[in-house]
Simulated assay, not measured.
Amino acid sequence: MEDAWVHLQQFTSARIALGRTGTSIPLKEMLAFRLAHAHARDAVYSLLEVDALQQACSEAFRLPVRVLHSQAADREVYLQRPDKGRQLDAVSVAALQDLPPEDLGKNIAFVITDGLSATAVNVHALPLLSLVLPALLESGYSLSPLHLVRQGRVAVGDAVGALLQARLVVVLIGERPGLSSPDSMGVYLTFAPQPGLTDEARNCISNIRPGGLSSEMAAARLAHLVRNALRQGLSGVHLKDDLMDGLLT
């Protein structure tokens, strides 16, 4: 008898209707599962391609691109001590404190960090920025220099944004890899960034990857959120992501 779930496979990458051999799933599916698990583990330990991103962003956007580091000295510390990934190390703090006045007080600061999948950021950060930065500049917003942060978590953007005295910080970060999405990137937006803020103060655009949310749609949503956040002076639970409402009416 045909599995009633088979026709649903076309709508999802979830592992459904795998079939069985005796009381077990088929060998092919078991091997596919193990391969997906290996890809997810590789993503967690992947490295941010700092030199390539720095050069590509500098050439594409004509903005200074600086490299910072969290307090997590290496990947093992990063995974075991999430708090250290949320804070900048002393060298990075000093570098931001020494910036010239013309680099401070901009409308928007963009921070790019590895998170739990540097693979996602290496692949998807530049395409997204290539779409959203020209749109924001065309709208008249001022941008801080771009900052790449090694071993960073979402909240490290608050530290960067506060030291840059930016009105708004946008963090591009690799998301926790799933068994079908080792390359998923997220974007977090926070108005008036300050250390100590928690997740309700942020807006999130998630699952940016070919099998999820396209760079084009993510860029449109991000530009929409940025404009509304700066106009209304808020973000997080108080800022409605109503872009789709406008498209559907």
Rank of each mutant, 00 (worst) to 15 (best):
N122K: 03
A90L: 13
L104Y: 05
E102N: 05
G85L: 02
H124Y: 14
H124D: 04
D114L: 03
K106A: 15
A118M: 00
L116K: 12
N107E: 15
D89F: 06
A125G: 00
G115I: 12
T113C: 07
T113W: 03
V91E: 13
V93C: 13
T113Y: 02
I108S: 00
A125K: 08
R86L: 06
L88T: 10
A125T: 01
L126M: 06
A94V: 10
L126Y: 04
L88I: 10
P101V: 14
I112M: 06
I108D: 06
G85P: 05
A95I: 02
I108K: 03
V111N: 05
D114I: 09
V91K: 07
Q87S: 04
A95P: 12
P100F: 12
E102Q: 14
L96W: 05
L126I: 10
G105Q: 08
S117A: 14
V93I: 14
V93D: 01
T113L: 12
L96G: 02
A118F: 11
A109R: 07
Q97D: 14
D103K: 11
T119N: 05
V91Q: 15
G85F: 04
A118K: 11
A95D: 06
F110S: 01
L96M: 12
D114Y: 09
I108C: 02
D98H: 15
G105E: 09
A118Q: 09
K84S: 01
N107R: 10
Q97A: 04
L104N: 02
I108A: 02
V123M: 07
D103N: 12
L96D: 03
D103V: 01
N107S: 15
L96P: 04
D103Y: 15
R86G: 00
A90H: 03
A95C: 10
E102H: 08
I108M: 01
Q97E: 14
F110Y: 08
I108P: 01
A125R: 01
N122V: 14
L99I: 04
P101F: 04
R86V: 09
H124C: 03
V121H: 13
Q87G: 03
L88F: 02
L99M: 13
T113S: 07
A95L: 11
N107D: 15
D89I: 01
V121A: 01
S117G: 00
D89L: 00
L104R: 13
Q87T: 10
K84R: 14
T119M: 12
Q97M: 10
N122M: 09
N107V: 06
S117P: 04
S117D: 01
D98M: 13
G115D: 02
A90F: 08
Q97V: 02
I112E: 11
L88K: 06
G105V: 13
